[in-house]
Design a protein around this nucleic acid. Structure first.
Lengths: 201, 201
DNA sequence: GATCGTGCCTGACAAATGTCATGGGTCCGG
DNA sequence: CCGGACCCATGACATTTGTCAGGCACGATC
């Protein structure tokens, strides 16, 4: 019997997946969590064979949790299941030690199949997405540029960002300008969108 | 047997819901679509008793489709099932003649229950959300302000918006300024976010 | 030990953005 | 018919944003 942990914030999706996976004869959902910070504690308690992790979770990203899991519970394989097939996400998932990366796009049947393949030691990755991740290359943003850009996502002004990061306003403008240049965009808002689309935030 | 149409763009969610609903003895999923513009044709073909519509769909909004359905297939009850419990969405859903409004938050069991209640003539609405929708009031934005703001969502410049809507740049700035004032925000980006959060776009 | 990339900063400039006052047009309800 | 909404537009203005050229310090790498 394959023991599965399920981390997914959307209640309906989580309960639906849990029900359907439990219908499989060789799969048992032993833990369900809705936030990122519950993943590791719950996994240490329930000792699953596979962890199905969404990326965009409240509390803590599924990618961070995956890296934690690799250290704290190496026996547990990680399968990332996400809405957005962003190249940077795939890259970071691999760096965090994930064994598979699935977009919530295909039928649910794919999920059970992926679980079995991951447990068999295979790596499960959407081929088209893998190509995109490789062709897109890694993030061109320096850590600081990333910080400034993430601080700008919700429409904060330069002054806001400078205050939050304890930087000079001129410095913030410089980082923003660099990010705009590297993303090939025309302003802050486009830069944020481009960076997000690539999973660089 | 209750015949159901399912409109949902996320493949995994769609197939999961279809499977689970088909497990119910009195429910049968007679049509599944992934885009908004397929809803009405498919409904006219399959003649469902209830249509389960997501709002944010490619092609055409589930809300628009709901209004269409009311005219073209009045026998079909509409149940909106959405990720985002935005007050404006609920309001528009009601105006479009929807019989129920569900957030994808609770367990899937809620869904089957809601279907049966809607078919029994009840209205199914999350009480907390209803309160929020009433307290938030209707959108303060004029149609034109809404247009300009939606054209600004992806970081377009004033010139872009003016070109797309065939307006003067100064006019665009005025509408933007009005929208910023009405949303109580400090710039374009915040105004867009605020309007989106309320479902005014 | 020199060079390079990075982080942090400054100052100055041009361009884009947000605000305000003002005007003319339409259309609708009192 | 008049007032009040909305639509579209101007022009002027202050502020914010984006760009560019520099400077200093630090650690890594060669």
């Amino acid at each position: 019997m394959i023991k599965v942990l399920l981390a997914e914030d959307q209640g309906m999706m989580r309960s639906a997946l849990a029900l359907l996976l439990d219908l499989e004869e060789d799969i048992e959902v032993v833990a369900q969590v809705a936030t990122g910070d519950q993943i590791v504690p719950s996994a240490l308690d329930a000792r699953p064979d596979v962890a199905l992790l969404d990326i965009e979770l409240p509390g803590c990203s599924g990618l961070d949790a995956a890296a934690d899991l690799r250290d704290r519970l190496p026996s547990c394989k990680v399968l990332i299941v996400t809405t957005f097939g962003r190249p940077g996400y795939l890259r970071r998932a691999m760096e965090a030690g994930a064994c598979g990366f699935l977009v919530k796009d295909g039928p649910v049947g794919d999920l059970a199949a992926a679980i079995r393949r991951v447990l068999a030691g295979e790596r499960v990755i959407d081929p088209g997405l893998a190509a995109a991740a490789l062709s897109a290359g890694p993030s061109p943003l320096t850590p600081r540029e990333r910080d400034v850009l993430t601080a700008a996502v919700d429409g904060a002004t330069v002054a806001d960002i400078a205050g939050k990061l304890h930087l000079s306003q001129a410095t913030v403008r410089n980082y923003l300008s660099a990010a705009i240049g590297k993303t090939g965009t025309r302003n802050r808002m486009e830069a944020v969108r481009a960076a997000r689309r690539n999973g660089w935030l």
